[in-house]
C-alpha cells in the first residue's frame, strides 16, 4: 500500500484546513493573469525578460557531481534567474492562512524555496520564475482571501488590528481596497503605483472565513475542543523536553 502522508491530526474544521494547506489540496477561488501577477509582485515589468544572475546551468559546464545528477534544478535555477521574494500578511480575524501554514505549504509542495516565518507575515524567497509559479498558486487558491490577507513586501502592519468597517484588513499603504464588492490592487507589493487595477475577486464572508480558517480561536473553533491536536502538541512538547534533557555522566 502506498504511503499517504497524514500531515496534521484533528477533526475540527481548523485541523482539516491545516491538512488541506499542507497537502496543497486547495480550492481555486479566482483567476489572476500572469501579467497582473507580475505587476503586483513588482520585480520586473510585465512582458519583459527575466533578468539573470548567471548563465543557464546547461551552458555553465558544471563539475561532475552525483548529487547534481540526482537533483533536477528548478526551471528558475536552470535558467539562472535572480532570487526574489513575495511576502504575505494574514489577519488574526479568521484569515484562511497563518504564517506557519504558509511556510508548511511552501516547504512541502515547492522546491528551491526559502520560507521565512514571522509573527504577522510570511516571506518566501526563490528564483524569479519559480516565485511566479508559487505566487500564482497562492494568490488564486483558498489559502489567500484578499480581504483578510495582503501581499505586502514592506509595511505589513495590520494583521493584529481590528478589521476596517468594510471587513477588510487595514493597509497603511492602501495597496488593495474594496471597490464595488471586489478587492482591487493598484500598487505593487511595496506600494509603488502600477499601470493597472488588478481585480483580486470577491472577499469571502465572515461566516465563510470562520469555516475556512486554519486558526483556533475561542470565538470560533477553540484549540482545546480538538482533543487529538492537544494530545499531539503535548506529545511533541514531551519528546522535545526529553530530547533536550541530556544528563551528563
Amino acid at each position: 500500500m502506498a504511503y499517504k502522508p497524514q500531515y496534521y491530526p484533528g477533526n475540527t474544521s481548523s485541523a482539516k484546513n491545516r491538512r488541506k494547506h499542507m497537502s496543497n489540496d486547495l480550492e481555486k477561488m479566482r483567476d489572476i493573469s500572469d501579467e497582473d501577477l507580475t505587476a503586483i509582485l513588482g520585480h520586473r515589468a510585465p512582458g519583459s525578460d527575466y533578468p539573470s544572475t548567471h548563465p543557464p546551468l546547461s551552458e555553465m559546464g558544471e563539475p561532475d557531481d552525483p548529487v547534481r545528477e540526482v537533483v533536477e534544478p528548478t526551471p528558475g535555477a536552470a535558467a539562472g534567474d535572480r532570487v526574489r521574494y513575495v511576502q504575505f500578511a494574514d489577519s488574526m480575524y479568521n484569515a484562511p492562512a497563518t504564517p506557519y501554514f504558509r511556510s508548511y505549504h511552501a516547504a512541502i509542495n515547492f522546491r528551491g524555496v526559502d520560507p521565512g516565518t514571522l509573527s504577522g507575515r510570511e516571506v518566501n524567497e526563490m528564483r524569479e520564475r519559480d516565485l511566479e509559479e508559487f505566487s500564482k498558486r497562492v494568490c488564486e487558491t483558498e489559502i489567500t482571501d484578499w480581504g483578510l490577507a495582503g501581499m505586502r513586501g514592506c509595511t505589513v502592519h495590520g494583521h493584529s488590528l481590528r478589521l476596517q468597517e468594510d471587513g477588510t484588513m487595514f493597509d497603511m499603504l492602501d495597496r488593495r481596497r474594496l471597490e464595488g464588492g471586489v478587492i482591487v490592487m493598484d500598487k505593487d507589493q511595496v506600494g509603488v503605483p502600477i499601470d493597472r487595477k488588478v481585480n483580486l475577486g470577491k472577499p469571502i464572508s465572515e461566516a465563510e472565513a470562520a469555516k475556512r480558517t486554519t486558526m483556533y480561536r475561542v470565538d470560533n473553533v477553540p484549540f482545546r475542543s480538538d482533543k487529538e491536536v492537544v494530545e499531539h502538541v503535548q506529545k511533541v512538547w514531551e519528546l522535545r523536553t526529553r530530547y533536550g534533557f541530556q544528563p551528563k555522566a
Partner: peptide, 9 residues
C-alpha cells in the same frame, strides 16, 4: 511610503 524599495511614493 516611508520604508522599503518604494520609499517616497
Amino acid at each position: 511610503v516611508i520604508c522599503g524599495p518604494g520609499t517616497g511614493s
